[in-house]
Nucleic acid binder design. Structure first.
Length: 606
RNA sequence: GCACCCGUAGCUCAGCUGGAUAGAGCGUCGCCCUCCGGAGGCGAAGGUCACAGGUUCGACUCCUGUCGGGUGCGCCA
């Protein structure tokens, strides 16, 4: 069945040329390790002392560029004063091109000052690198990412936006690092509501003719079916009948059901395309896909004595969760009428992803209300041995979308806000801004700018927040040109493009030695080198807001640099001009790459 | 009743694996226009990190309790 098309397991990821970039933290860690083992040989430290060596960026330049607390951690096992130990660590540190000098500060921190020559070399490499110095992951994994998950016969609404956008950004980031990513769109395509939907579709077809069905407004269709189900007993009876027949595999009902799915997927795809979300119909893995697995799972859980019968239903008792009497909570996996529940589906789903798709890691981008439910399902999954302990099942939760007034985000009449309406409004607001501020652009380009701006603003507003609780949706905030917003980043990017236009230099192929003299130049160079760490952090934690924060800081560093270090002004030496153009072009490249990983386009002019 | 999530500046949010003086933007108040796109930059004011204990050389971060908010909890998904 087409809609069940399992994601094909991709070809084994090609052996890539591993880009060997000296990462500053890793290199320092290595140096410290050597110093540590020297001290062990000298008997200063016990042999079995092997801490995780921590190297951090400092917050204040007076503390150097990087620092370690290693001496503080080692003080106790060494039975030594931390500062004295810090000195011993420094004395045994091999010399390196990376470090210009070290300092011992405070209670026993070791501060490292980076060699500016080393810095400029690294940044120069970045200019040549296709990947902005981001190496592919050393251990390539198959990662299943569950996101978006709208319902059949309903239109996508604001409740789906966060899962869709954040999930898509994480997917792009993982793929950039070389992982084999399987997008899983777990659409709600099963359940008792299909009886009334089929019945309603049937009536609609009889009225309009089978081929003339126009379900432009899925919401209205769903509401109508529900309303008839609640008020018309004859209709309700027919609906209940269809549920049974559908579950029994009745051909006619299956056909009608597929029709509903098909119509919905077309709606959804239009929204995904409009939002530049990388999902396609091939990524649909709906709930119904797991139906065939459910009987076997229940039997297996019974056989394993994890499940038992209780009042006709099959129940798994979990000591980890208590019910209101303080007894182990029973999770029903099969109703007394023989029907299955979504917990059973989610058990099957996790099992399938690991056993059939070969996942090394599974990430779920689902709202926080599902948390407890997922934990229960996964507890059972672990106990039954369907997913080994070394394969993480991760729930990346988020809260509800609230309006500026702190109340649930609704239409004026109190209805759910459809995603298309939200995008339309974004488009309108962005157009207004562009009409006002970009009059020098041709109308056609203005329209393009407005649509990129709209899409970017909506997506970025979501991506830049890390709340697991409810969050506030505010048009004015997300469309502002100040602060951590898409417009600010797009502006910074387009401004760099304009420097090159003005200088009449092609960025492609431009190359010049980098000179780091001014504080602002050094700060910008250091910020550029943090890109690789940021990409990895987003992938490891599934948190795209870390990329947003980074890009915002980068743009800020660039703006400060641009203010302090003239590029095309008279009085700037040729060498400085070229060096600064080089820094500008790398900055643009990183912003472009970073936004691309977030699923956001850039603008050459705005 | 039980469970999960959360509580950081007036507002919206950061704060990475426990590190040095808790950071941005908006708003408020200043400064910088013979300016490379002012859609910008620089600065000031604004904090009992909900509260109370504990662990630690060191806690916004970890543990316990209290208060406050959100959400969920046997036959819907």
């Amino acid at each position: 069945m087409f809609y069940r098309s399992f994601a094909k397991i991709c070809d084994p990821v090609k052996k890539f040329e591993s880009l060997v970039f000296q990462r500053m933290k890793a290199q320092l860690q290595h140096l410290l390790e050597q110093s540590l083992s020297a001290l062990k040989q000298q008997g200063v430290l016990p042999e079995d002392f092997s801490p995780r060596i921590q190297v951090d960026r400092t917050k204040d330049i007076s503390h150097g560029d990087l620092a370690t607390n290693l001496a503080l951690m080692a003080a106790k096992p060494a039975k030594q004063n931390p500062r004295a130990l810090a000195q011993a660590l420094v004395d045994n540190l091999p010399s390196s091109a990376l470090v210009e000098k070290t300092e011992i500060a405070g209670p026993g921190f070791i501060n490292f000052y980076l060699n500016p020559n080393w810095l400029s070399e690294q940044v120069s490499q970045m200019a040549k690198s296709e990947r902005c110095n981001v190496a592919k992951a050393q251990q390539l994994q198959t990662v299943v990412v569950d996101y978006s998950a709208p319902n059949v016969a309903k239109e996508m609404h604001v409740g789906h936006i966060r899962s869709t956008i954040i999930g898509d950004a994480v997917v792009r980031t993982l793929e950039f690092l070389g992982h084999n990513v399987i997008r899983a769109n777990h659409i709600g395509d099963w359940g008792t509501q299909f009886g009334m939907l089929i019945a309603n579709l049937e009536d609609l077809e009889q009225g309009q003719g089978e081929d003339n069905i126009d379900l432009a407004d899925l919401e209205a269709f769903y509401r109508e079916a529900k309303q008839r189900y609640d008020s018309d007993e004859v209709f309700a009876e027919r609906a209940r009948n269809y549920v049974v027949k559908l579950q029994g595999g009745d051909e006619y009902c299956q056909k009608m059901w597929k029709k509903l799915i098909d119509i919905t997927l077309d709606h959804n795809q239009a929204v995904y395309d409009r939002m530049n979300v990388s999902l396609s119909k091939q990524n649909v893995m709906g709930e119904s896909q797991y139906n065939a697995m459910l009987p076997g799972i229940v039997e297996d859980l019974l056989a394993q004595k994890l499940a038992e019968e209780d009042q006709g239903a099959i129940v798994v008792r979990l000591d980890e969760y208590k019910n209101k009497d303080g007894d182990p909570m029973g999770v029903i996996i099969r109703k007394k009428d023989g029907g299955y529940l979504y917990t059973t589906t989610d058990i099957a789903c996790a099992k399938y992803r690991v056993q059939e798709l070969g996942a090394d890691r599974v990430m779920y981008f689902i709202d926080s209300r599902q948390h407890q439910h997922l934990m229960q399902a996964w507890t059972i999954v672990r106990k039954a041995g369907y997913v080994p302990e070394n394969v993480p099942l991760e729930h990346h939760a988020f809260g509800m979308m609230l309006g500026k007034d702190g109340r649930p985000f609704k239409t004026r009449s109190g209805g759910t806000v459809k995603l298309v309406d939200l995008l339309d409004e974004a488009q309108e607001r962005a157009s207004q801004i562009v009409e006002e501020k970009s009059q020098y652009l041709e109308p056609q380009e203005r329209q393009h700018v407005a649509s990129v701006l709209a899409q970017a603003s909506v997506k970025y507003a979501d991506l830049s927040k890390n709340r697991t609780t409810d969050y506030i949706f505010d048009w004015d905030n997300m469309l502002a040109f100040n602060g951590n917003t898409a417009p600010y980043l797009l502006y910074a990017y387009s401004r760099i493009q304009s420097i090159f236009r003005k200088a009449e230099i092609d960025q492609q192929g431009f190359s010049a030695p980098i000179i780091l003299e001014h504080d602002a130049e050094v700060a910008l160079a250091q910020k550029l080198l943090q890109f690789s760490d940021t990409v990895n952090a987003v992938a490891n934690k599934g948190m795209p807001h870390m990329m947003c924060n980074y890009l915002y800081e980068l743009a800020g560093s660039f703006m400060s640099f641009y203010e302090a270090c003239p590029i095309l002004k008279d009085g700037t030496s040729e060498a400085d001009k070229n060096s600064r153009l080089q820094l500008a072009t790398i900055t643009a490249k990183v912003i472009h790459q970073g936004l691309d990983l977030l699923g956001i386009e850039t603008l050459e002019r705005m």
